[in-house]
Simulated assay, not measured.
Amino acid sequence: MSPEEFLMEASSTQMTGRSQRRRRIFRLLAMGMAIVPFVALELVLWGLDVADPSQADDPSSGFNRSGRLFEVDKRDGVYRTATARGLFFGDQEFLLEKPENGFRLFCLGGSTVRGRPYTTESSFTRWLGLELAERTQGREVEAVNCGGLSYASYRLGPIVSEVLAYQPDLVVVATGHNEFLEDRSYKNVKGRNAVIAWLEDQAMSLRTVTMCRRWMSQEDPDTPEKDSAEVEARLDQQSGYASYQRDQAWQDKVVAQYGRSLELMIEECRKAKVPLVLVRLGSNLRDCPPFKSQHRDGLSAEERTKWQAAMDLGARETAALRFEAALTAFRRAEELDDQHALVAWRLARTLDRL
């Protein structure tokens, strides 16, 4: 290669390198210019205090593990239930500065703790606070209700972590009724990939996104959110029952997760040296028939007809107060299908009356 050819090739290579760098810089500038309007809009909304994400409903239904249940109100010197969590929790508040003679406790759980179907004022948290105030004369008792409608142990974990930062003297956890409900109803949001969940949570913290959500749903920013009492339990919806099918593997998984959630709460409270009381919730199986029953696999059409006839006969005998005959009929139905929940309940009710 002659010196002239070498110089020309070197010059061409140098120009190619410069061209590539220019293209990369141009692309970065183009991306930056595309982002600038959104950044500017976000800053304007922030400056005008418009579309505050903390004042909007929580689209992740409490599965945003970075979201807090309580927010600071410096003007009144209290912590208050965050507006974004208002659909599920009642309005609660407690002092920013814990009194020297104060006794502060938090009760966590689902709708039972929340006070459903009544208000937080009639919940056991309220009565517990009144009783403690009576028995500990001279101490200022703060009993804070952290009961969330349809909340199960998985979503209570982050709340335990949060309340431990508020100098509690006692934490009470009463959970266990919503484990299967939560796992079925919120399967998609609960099973999100960690990276996707983080990105979605960050996006939902932007005022621009909040404004777009309001616009798309045609919400009026001045219209107050629905009261938490208006929130329907997922099982109350017509499609709720259809999602429940007999699945032993899934059942075992949910039970195991429930145990693990409780273990994590216990570990956190022990590390913080805060007493923890676990409440075993009552279940009135005696007076409450199953929400849903399902026939065993392999039950033929002929067997189902015989089963229905036995159940109908048992119901007629029960209405006539002939409980021995009713018991015989229900046992006949049990022989055909021993996995049907309603059969077991009818048998138990009949035996209870004998």
Rank of each mutant, 00 (worst) to 15 (best):
V173Q: 03
T175G: 12
T175M: 11
T175R: 02
T175W: 03
H177Y: 13
H177D: 13
H177C: 00
N178A: 00
N178Q: 01
F180H: 12
F180P: 00
D183A: 15
D183R: 15
R184E: 02
R184I: 09
R184M: 11
S185V: 09
Y186S: 05
N188V: 15
N188M: 10
V189Y: 03
K190C: 03
K190Q: 06
K190T: 02
G191T: 06
G191Y: 07
G191V: 00
N193C: 13
N193D: 15
N193Y: 09
A194K: 02
A194W: 05
A194N: 04
A194M: 08
A194R: 02
A194F: 04
V195G: 02
W198N: 10
W198P: 02
W198M: 13
E200Q: 10
D201L: 02
Q202L: 09
Q202F: 03
M204S: 05
S205H: 15
S205E: 11
S205M: 11
L206F: 11
R207P: 00
V209P: 12
T210G: 05
M211E: 04
M211K: 11
M211H: 07
C212P: 00
C212Q: 12
R213F: 00
R213W: 01
R214H: 14
R214K: 15
R214M: 14
W215D: 07
W215Y: 12
M216Q: 06
M216G: 04
S217R: 08
Q218F: 06
Q218Y: 04
Q218S: 11
E219W: 02
D220Y: 08
D222R: 05
T223Q: 11
E225S: 08
E225D: 04
E225Y: 04
S228G: 14
A229P: 00
A229F: 07
A229H: 13
E230Q: 12
E230D: 07
E230L: 04
V231H: 09
E232Y: 10
E232L: 14
E232R: 09
E232W: 08
A233M: 13
R234I: 03
R234M: 08
D236L: 08
Q237H: 15
Q238N: 05
Q238H: 08
Q238C: 00
S239A: 08
G240N: 07
Y241M: 01
Y241A: 15
